[in-house]
Nucleic acid binder design. Sequence first.
DNA 1: TGACGTCACTTGTCCTTATGAGTGATGACT
DNA 2: AGTCATCACTCATAAGGACAAGTGACGTCA
Lengths: 259, 259
Amino acid sequence: MSEIQRPGALYQQVAAAIREAILSGEFAPDSLLPSEAQLMTRYGVSRPTVRNAIAALRAEGLIDVRHGKGSFVRSSGQPTLTLERSISHTREGKFVMPTGDIWQEAEEPHTYRTRTTKSTGRLLQLGAEEALFGCDRLLIDPSTGTRAMHRTLIPFEVAEAVPLLGEEPCKPAAAVDWVLTQAGHALSWTETVRAHMPLPDERAALQLPDATPVLHVARVAHNAGDRPLFLEELRFGADRAELAYRITADKQPTRRTRA
Amino acid sequence: MSEIQRPGALYQQVAAAIREAILSGEFAPDSLLPSEAQLMTRYGVSRPTVRNAIAALRAEGLIDVRHGKGSFVRSSGQPTLTLERSISHTREGKFVMPTGDIWQEAEEPHTYRTRTTKSTGRLLQLGAEEALFGCDRLLIDPSTGTRAMHRTLIPFEVAEAVPLLGEEPCKPAAAVDWVLTQAGHALSWTETVRAHMPLPDERAALQLPDATPVLHVARVAHNAGDRPLFLEELRFGADRAELAYRITADKQPTRRTRA
DNA sequence: TGACGTCACTTGTCCTTATGAGTGATGACT
DNA sequence: AGTCATCACTCATAAGGACAAGTGACGTCA
């Protein structure tokens, strides 16, 4: 029976005590925490209070709870997968993304037509309700089991200048490839990185544990006049993968985003 | 009284109903949700069930609950601050980060000596328990109120070659500046981006709302021989800011990370 | 030996009841 | 008019009880 008194609510004191024990290494990663009943007697509180404390630690991503088994200290291991987002080398005049080919499709791609939202419209420098081709894919890296959601959005205007896109089912990926290999289109893009908590559909598709944020990268490719060509989005669990960028000063002013 | 039946637990059905109402726009952003008592009669469930549903939505970051006032739909607005992480231009032969000067110090910097951990050692290509200078700062962007935690780590070996570092209190920021302006050190670095849920100290320092992930950027600067010079870490609430990278193909193979 | 039922353990769900505490409006008192 | 006590509303915390459901080990039975 550890007497606790400090900060505020009872359950927060219990949570703080357990958290401290975890961070200090008293409870090793992957080890089993005391059961709810044991924690009740240990701290002299009721079951709702214990469960409240556990819920708090769960929301912090410190522990995993498995029905019928108990609570386990989450192994806070670093992400196993590093996604190199810089252009690393050229091959026969074609630029290659280092990790562009690790992914396999876990499902059939889903292609559709849609319109710009506030957020996608801003990235593509288009107004609201502009027509777009869309393609959603669920990707998986077989070596690590990491899953990712991929989306390609191409404005109608751009798509008209590109072969393969008129066909059904349209294949935006092939079109993107075509754009990248064309001389008329300078190879330059902007990536925007965000993080947010997953909605239930993302949780399910990415098979995310509790309290795991989603990393979200939006890539906008530009042509020589710095006009947006298309948008590629990738989202994945922040517990599985990280992003890496190589940045070099080139002694020349970088092209401005807005002319 | 909406009858609900579908998926699993009662509270999940309630949570799903409310979530749907939010996502469909029935409950507008910043609007007040029905009170717990109203939800109890609306769905014919007890208070713990309602609270359980609300806790789930809170963990998803969909709502904010304010004691004594009620539950509000969180305005899922995009981050207001975009941190440009590319080198945008040169000025009198000195490279400048576009947003390098938006920050103000919210507290006195804290400088100290420490040793490499598993994660920092890997980034700096050092073994375990190597000696480092460290400097932690709490930054704030006055125009948006965004807060960020900044950390600089410099190996002793590197620091010995740099003036200003021997002094007390040492000023790693000035030292980093010195390194960047030296000809002997090529201007090139690698940034690694991750996201995780905040620990209580991060929650407090960054003043984060519920269910808000932390974005974490680690920048490692290299010298001409691709040896790591120092490490800079920046972390901030993913609700306030996003990262932006400008990527350009330079027709030359990029330097490899490992020789 | 193998299959299966049971049991003891775990967490999950749901209810009832009670009290504390923050917020804002109302209204009385000065 | 202005100040402040009160009250009705909100969510927060805590306890207790009951039953459902997942898990694994043990023991029985064919």
